[in-house]
């Protein structure tokens, strides 16, 4: 099973300094995914829901921006897990365990790549609090990109 969903849930509880929860529109994010064409590497509408969230009370501070980015990432992550599950089922029926093991290996390797990539960007901005925004944005964009890639993999009908 994927560890990514569990890990993110632990890491990314979207709570602001005031204790209020900053919310994003799940419908908006799912619409973004649905409207992203086949084989597009990076959905251009990823991040829009987090931007709107930032106009909520408490959303414009560094912590608020990060919480909004994380709230949107959670939705993309849920979609990623849904698409991964669909891909597993689809490939299990055509290729059996060999293929689903290979898919799992690829997904694990992607998780390690995402972590290393976002850690590097965090380091790059080590001079200021912007680093946590950069890192949260990195997770959001990579998760969105991967959710679309897995969706298109399961379709597998170019």
């Amino acid at each position: 099973m994927l560890r990514v969903g569990f890990m993110l849930a632990l890491m990314l509880a979207p709570v602001t300094a005031t204790g209020q929860t900053l919310k994003v529109s799940e419908t908006m994010i799912r619409t973004c995914a649905a409207e992203t064409p086949y084989a597009v590497a990076q959905p251009t509408c990823a991040g829009d829901a987090a931007n709107i969230c930032q106009s909520l009370p408490g959303g414009s501070t560094t912590n608020g921006i990060v919480a909004c980015l994380q709230a949107e990432t959670d939705i993309w992550d849920a979609m990623l897990n849904e698409e991964y599950g669909k891909a597993r089922t689809a490939f299990d029926s055509v290729g059996g365990e060999d293929l689903t093991t290979s898919l799992r290996d690829a997904q694990r390797a992607w998780i390690a790549f995402r972590d290393a990539d976002c850690a590097m960007r965090y380091h790059q901005w080590s001079g200021g609090t912007i680093r946590s925004v950069v890192s949260a944005s990195c997770h959001l964009q990579m998760t969105a990109s991967r959710a679309i890639a897995l969706r298109d993999l399961a379709r597998n009908e170019p």
């Binding site: 290729g95 690829a106 992607w110 790549f113 290393a116 990539d117």
Partner: peptide
């Protein structure tokens, strides 16, 4: 940077191995 690029190589290899396996 090196860690990121090594992780990318592993990701690329695992991904393309999966695609070929189909």
């Amino acid at each position: 940077l090196v860690q990121m690029q090594r992780a990318w190589i592993a990701y690329r290899d695992a991904t393309c191995a999966f695609e070929r396996r189909q």
